[in-house]
Design a protein around this nucleic acid. Structure first.
Lengths: 225, 225, 225, 225
DNA sequence: CATGAATGAGGATTCATTCAT
DNA sequence: CATGAATGAATCCTCATTCAT
């Protein structure tokens, strides 16, 4: 009797694992396929084949094609946001925080090349569903940058004439464009560290109150007009 | 006799104008529709309706749907590149050159809101045709930034440790991302001048050798080769 | 005054010639194009280009695409029928008549290769318009064969057990199939005379009561039942 | 266990039969529709409706419209060729062989009226795909006639001055033209037997060395190699 | 009459989604 | 839950025909 219950529970767990397995298999297959062919050119059967699953199976886990795309964002971007936030909490210095953000972003993009492309490609899409997602959820991510800048301004290390909401876009745009072409030329020429150094060198120098040479800081800091 | 020749030539000219008219009517209709719905979601009949032209007429001027998109790029981006290059030739100071670039870009994007969206959306598409175009033709545009930076380095006003090909991407990415969201929030809050000032304030401060206060600062300016 | 009238009449005549010219130019262009591409695959603009005429001009001489095809038949086949009938009237011997028919047919097909193909290709089409034409007019041509056979039977030189309406089809079918592949292989191998000789050799021997004269005769001939 | 295997295999077989069913349902529907409307005038949806299948289903079994036509030939003509060849192998007398060929051809055409029309109509088409098929595959069929004639010449029963490649065309053309108009007038007037008798009567008399009475005549018959 | 740009109906094909097995 | 054959709506493009010049 106990044995039967055990078997029963086991089957539920296995069943759940299997399902969970299939769900994420589809997600990563979709990420790959979307990255390779773009959302509209990608076919459901491509994703199914990549996930080694039947076409119909996909509809047991997702409502429709858009839902897959949304889930890719939701889950994969979610992980990155979570990771980044966790790392930032432990660090108080806005300088370091920006460095962490850049490093995290570039490493995430490098690690999941396909996801990087999907974000870059589909984030620009004007499809209603995506637009809503972008407006509601993705801005959280760029919001992190604005927060760091604001904190820096409060701490007196970032110039007060810098508009955080403009700067966050400039900063994210720069990062994103750099990751966009990673696959082609940059990859072979620059490491994550080099790019991080360059980006911070430009931006920090650009926004900080002390026009010193990054990263070795300067001690006298005349206030900006 | 002379009169007849005149009428004949006039008819040719009018004919040409009419055709030219239709061509550009389709181009701008396509720009509008692509911006609103995205390339894949846009239907040929949408463009035709927007251009007040029959579906079939479009195929008298373009080979296929992709050709329309390509033409939008080719012609509209072409104009921007040309404009920008003309303005830059007359200016030797890299500082001013970057300022011109930013102003030109933002004004062009503001003027042709639809084009801005099309560029941002479709530039990321992974379709073969677009990819080729992007790689061959669009890089010219970003190449301008790299040139300005290199000149500035030769002139000793930009830091030598800045990699022009990284900086150009960062710079273009920042500009592009800022234009991207123009439609939603930024527009109401910032003018082209404000954004230009911010962007230059950050970037110039970020890359120049003399960490002076932007924008009044450059005293000696040797002419560029 | 007289001069003016003359000019007027001349212009009408020239006008008519020009029109006539254009009409036949289109006919022969259509024959060529239909032969090359088949009726359905041929485009009106192909015919227009071949005839060195504007697309719209074709509709000044023909009602529609089918009308062109019909006219090709009507006029070109008409010529052949007329020619053949004229030659046959002058000859009383059914043997010779069949020989004339074969020679005429093969020569016409050889002379106007394109027409030959059009007849062979489009005669089989099941399109309503063509079907009606075929049933009403073309049977006249094959009817000639039946007449010759009937005459031969009355004259006692062709077997009475031969059904003229079956034999006419067999005969025409044989001729037609031979012309059909003329373009490829037969042309280089056999002359019109050789083919005529073979065809008559088989058919005349096959249907005549006395296997006489043509070409290597047999001497004893038991009568057919 | 055995039972399960059985059920499994049964399901595979049933599945295969179903698919096979649909494939051949489409083939025969296409044959019907092509015969009725001609290849170009036939619409895919016509075939789909005739086969009681959705439009899209057709593309699960065929690549495109031409592929359907080709398959009709390939399969249906293939069957006829095979049947005919099997029957001919068992018969050594060229006289009888020709009789078999005629009977087979006419019976096949009568049995599958639609196929007959499709062959006759489309065989003449000038489309590249069809032309290639025709040249490669269909000539096999007419080749059979040439073989029979050659054998007859070796056996001394057919005249040596007959060119097998001309005669085969004449013979096939005659047969084909006769089947072509079967639908209209001939059908009601003549049976397969009558037509066969006429055709053989004409042709055999036309090509044989001994002008004996067909069909009772051959006394010595050396076996063919 | 001649032109050829414009029209728009029509059709082959694709592919997201469903559902019987 | 899993499958994948079947579905049919949706759309790009062609081309016969028209008509303003």
């Amino acid at each position: 009797m106990l044995f039967h219950s055990f078997i029963y529970l086991l089957s539920i767990v296995l069943f759940w694992m299997k399902a969970e397995n299939k769900h994420s298999k589809i997600i990563s297959a979709a990420t790959k396929v979307f990255a390779k062919k773009g959302f509209f050119t990608a076919r459901i059967s491509d994703i199914a084949k990549e996930a080694k699953v039947a076409d119909g199976t996909i509809y047991l886990y997702f409502n429709n094609k858009y839902d897959i795309l949304l889930s890719v964002f939701e889950e994969e971007v979610g992980k990155i946001v979570e990771n980044t936030e966790n790392l930032l909490i432990a660090e108080a210095d806005p300088h370091k925080q920006l460095e962490i953000f850049v490093t995290q972003h570039l490493m995430a993009m490098k690690k999941n090349r396909h996801l990087a492309e999907v974000i870059q490609i589909e984030l620009r899409q004007t499809h209603k569903v995506i637009k809503e997602y972008r407006d509601n959820k993705f801005s959280k991510y760029t919001g992190i940058i604005a927060e760091i800048i604001k904190n820096g301004q409060l701490a007196g290390i970032f110039r007060l004439d810098i508009k955080p909401d403009l700067a966050k876009r400039a900063f994210f745009g720069a990062l994103d464009e750099i990751s966009r072409v990673w696959n082609s030329s940059l990859e072979t020429n620059y490491s994550v560290e080099e790019i991080t150094a360059q980006m911070l060198s430009i931006f920090l120098t650009g926004i900080q109150t002390t026009p010193s040479t990054f990263p070795e800081q300067v001690f006298f800091l005349p206030s900006q007009p």
